[in-house]
Design a protein around this nucleic acid. Structure first.
Length: 547
RNA sequence: GGCCCUGUGGUCAAGCGGUUAAGACGGAGCCCUCUCAAGGCUCAAUCUCGGGUUCGAUUCCCGACAGGGUCACCA
């Protein structure tokens, strides 16, 4: 068969370059020996979620801790699943979490020399190589219809045979020349398939950067490399793109491990040296009784926008993910509480080989500690950012008074002091914590545990003696003095020695005051809160608390 | 079902033939304390199961079992 003629008939494009040209257009990158070139290659199918951030972080860290390049390529070969604005959303979401690309789609960079970075725009390149493969007898046209393929698959599963297009099932593999041209003339749609040279009898020992030694079976499937719309499948595009974009380390989810044999064969027939591969175990979550990997479709609550909306501190999310990525990160973070996570020596081969369950408790803890390291100004900026986007109108007007919020934050959170509080996990909580400092959001519940008489005596007596200038010990001394008036113990030790002798103790006195002033039985230091509110507002709240 | 990956407390995990089997989150308790946080101290909790190899297996080998992934003109 005249393969050259066949190739021209199948790929009639006029503007195709000789394949050697591409090696010149996309030369090896100049880089330090250990510098890794990694990429994030999402399909533009909508929002990205925590699992994507997880692997993006692995890519970004691998590149940037080695002085390499991290780029963005868009795998838009499936027209049906495309979602508008998805690319911008990916970039924006990742940027919010501090992950930036050096090069790639929609990235303004002088480094963009390996593009285009949208696969649809690279059709010409793929087609040049498909043509070459046909000429060399490594690829052939397949005219099988979807129905025929389905029928074959059914027969195969009925016979418990391996499903797919291979061996005796590969009907179009040995089509005669006449038949091919007849179908072409008749306009029968066709795809181009790889003419696999492999056999499942052969095992390949493969070294994965995360999994270590992996044994895979050689590919024998005549996989589709060019779809009937003239656009390549993922497998083929991957081989071409990662070769010509000079990716050194392909980090991807372990669901790809099973198609590795295809990719290896593709590299072989194309004459490319395969990149190093790192197959990451995926983030899991509990779904009822069992665990499964995070899914974009099933877990919309795991979208990155969700975390932004919930007000997680972005660095905290990243740090939490880092603890999953490299388990010694946590130890490092403990030793370097103020260290930038970027100075930690991330290594791809330290990644866990099994999939981790996403742990919200842990994320909350990391977030809490991160937020507790903020200065009052930083804390304001963080909360304010959230308020502007997700807060209520009241929140916004409160936050217009920057100085006041900063002052309140500094005092109640003990910022700068030795007793730094750690109770904000998310921006929303922090904002709610400020509610009772503003009259329009002060909504007391007055859930007193004591009788009316006790409550009123406590409040009235305190109103008489309250002085905002009192320091904490003077303030507390006054609280203590009130206790005996309602039959409460003024010293905790006395109360503990004989609880039945008293109706309560100082802390109960404080609780009554606290409920009147903040509306809640629990709050940060009450004396400080009252000082912030000032005499007039404190007293009017104490009065309002009277039953 | 075939193939592949994984298997240490509830969770994330360290461990690389001999350990009292780290640490963190979570849980329990105590202390501190005007409450709540935080902090300090203490406690409970783990090597999936069989066979081998070995003087000795959590660690190496084989098998079972369990969990996960994958079997498209989706990526």
């Amino acid at each position: 068969m005249d393969l050259k003629k066949l190739a021209s008939a199948l790929i009639p494009d006029a503007d195709i370059l000789p394949i050697d040209e591409y090696e010149k257009i996309y030369p090896e990158r100049e880089r330090a020996p250990k510098a890794e070139v990694t990429r994030l290659a999402p399909s533009p199918t909508g929002f990205i979620h925590l699992g994507n951030l997880y692997s993006a972080l692995a890519d970004e860290r691998s590149a940037h801790t080695t002085g390499g390049i991290f780029y963005l390529r868009i795998e838009d070969t499936d027209e049906k699943r495309k979602v508008d604005g998805a690319v911008e959303s990916v970039i924006r979401s990742l940027k919010y979490f501090g992950i930036n690309f050096d090069e790639g789609a929609e990235i303004d960079s002088p480094l963009n020399k390996y593009g285009p970075y949208y696969q649809r725009q690279r059709a010409k390149i793929y087609r040049a190589f498909v043509k070459d493969l046909i000429e060399r007898g490594y690829a052939y046209p397949c005219f099988c219809s979807e129905d025929e393929l389905n029928a074959v698959r059914e027969e195969q599963s009925a016979n418990k045979d391996t499903t797919g297009y291979y061996g005796k099932w590969a009907k179009c593999r040995n089509l005669g020349e006449d038949e091919i041209y007849k179908k072409l003339a008749a306009g029968v749609p066709y795809v181009i398939r790889l003419k696999s040279q492999g056999s499942i009898e052969n095992k390949i020992a493969f070294r994965d950067a995360i999994k270590g030694e992996v044994t895979v079976t050689e590919n024998e499937q005549d996989v589709v490399i060019l779809k009937s719309d003239g656009i390549p499948t993922y497998h083929f595009a991957h081989a071409i793109d990662d070769h010509f974009m000079r990716t050194t380390l392909v980090i991807r989810g372990e669901e790809w491990l099973s198609s590795l044999p295809v990719h290896l064969e593709l590299h072989k027939v194309l004459g490319f040296k395969p990149p190093r591969y790192a197959h990451t175990s995926s983030l899991m979550k509990m779904d009822g009784e069992t665990k499964r990997k995070l899914s974009k479709r099933k877990d919309p609550e795991l979208s990155l926008d969700y975390y932004r909306k919930a007000g997680y501190y972005p660095v905290a999310v990243v740090k939490y993910l880092m603890t999953l990525l490299n388990s010694d990160f946590e130890e490092w973070a403990l030793k370097n509480p103020d260290g930038d996570y970027r100075t930690f020596k991330f290594r791809i081969d330290k990644m866990s080989r099994s999939g981790a369950l996403f742990d919200l408790d842990k994320l909350n803890d990391v977030s809490k500690t991160e937020i507790s390291k903020l200065s009052a100004e930083e804390c304001y900026e963080f909360l304010n950012g959230w308020v502007r986007e997700f807060g209520t109108e009241k929140d916004k007007s409160h936050f217009d008074d920057r100085e006041y919020i900063i002052e309140v934050l500094a005092l109640i959170m003990g910022i700068g002091g030795k007793k730094r509080r750690k109770d904000i996990e998310r921006a929303e909580q922090g904002v709610r914590l400020l509610d009772y400092f503003f009259d329009d959001t002060f909504s007391p519940e007055y859930c007193y545990r004591f009788d009316k008489n006790t409550v009123n005596t406590v409040l009235n007596e305190f109103i008489k003696v309250y002085e905002p200038s009192d320091d904490n010990s003077a303030w507390f001394a006054k609280v203590k003095k009130i206790a005996p008036l309602v039959g409460f113990a003024s010293e905790m030790s006395e109360y503990k020695a004989n609880p039945s002798a008293y109706g309560g103790n100082v802390s109960d006195v404080a609780e009554i005051l606290r409920i009147a002033v903040t509306g809640m039985p629990n709050s940060p230091d009450l004396c400080t809160i009252m000082r912030i509110l000032g005499k007039e507002r404190s007293v009017s709240r104490l009065k309002a608390g009277l039953r």
